[in-house]
């Protein structure tokens, strides 16, 4: 454990909780892509199956359980409890264009050709692109609530901090995982445009709105 990994995990946790609280307090999931949230639930489920096979630490297990629980709670709020507020018309990204190629890639490029390992790889690849339906939705509506941008910032920062963690682990532990590193780079790059808007607009007190 190093500071980048810890702050990355906490940033991830903050993102998940910000989103849950936003939906719960406003009793609405307007502006939130249910498709991205389903993809994240799939990501956590596929990746954390090792909860059943190996134990790493109390921290590791607790975080995994919290992430999975929150992911399903979020999906439940969007598609069941506050379904009436879900903006399905603007959530029109075709997720099969992500899931199918990513599934194929996981079968082709993995560390070990075993079911659990392929599912882990699938989850890493899928996570890197899972935010695309959300970003697509924002580009379609041309705006995002400020609280939604805080969510996206924390979520994007988490993988960015992990990149520093991987540099750290390579130098001090000789550890590197090429699949996670490449996917993490892709994931971070996808947020760059958003990071720019967040810093230049939201942090200066303006609402995030895109030119028509």
């Amino acid at each position: 454990m190093n500071i980048f990994r810890l702050t990355g995990d906490l940033s991830h946790l903050a993102a998940i909780i910000i989103l849950l609280l936003k939906i719960w307090k406003s009793r609405s999931c307007a502006g939130i892509s249910g498709k991205s949230q389903i993809l994240f639930a799939i990501v956590f489920t596929a990746r954390y199956l090792d909860l059943l096979t190996s134990f790493i630490s109390v921290y590791n297990t607790s975080m995994k359980v919290i992430y999975i629980g929150c992911a399903y709670a979020t999906v439940y709020l969007i598609y069941a409890k506050f379904r009436a507020t879900y903006d399905g018309n603007h959530d029109s990204f075709r997720v099969e264009f992500l899931v199918v190629p990513v599934g194929g890639l996981a079968v082709l490029i993995n560390h070990t050709f075993s079911p659990l390992e392929i599912l882990w790889t699938f989850s890493i690849y899928l996570e890197s692109v899972a935010i695309l339906p959300q970003l697509f939705m924002i580009s379609k509506t041309g705006e995002a609530e400020t609280i939604t941008t805080h969510y996206l910032f924390c979520l994007g920062m988490y993988r960015t901090l992990y990149l520093f963690n991987w540099v750290w682990r390579f130098y001090f532990e000789g550890f590197f995982d090429m699949i996670a590193i490449v996917a993490g780079l892709v994931q971070t790059v996808l947020y760059c445009d958003f990071f720019y808007l967040y810093v230049t607009k939201v942090l200066k007190g303006k609402k995030l709105s895109l030119p028509a």
Binding site: D9, R47, H111, S114, D177
Partner: peptide
């Protein structure tokens, strides 16, 4: 390199 089946990150 990678220690297979020992993914200790989240």
């Amino acid at each position: 390199g990678m220690r297979v089946d020992e993914h200790d990150e989240l």
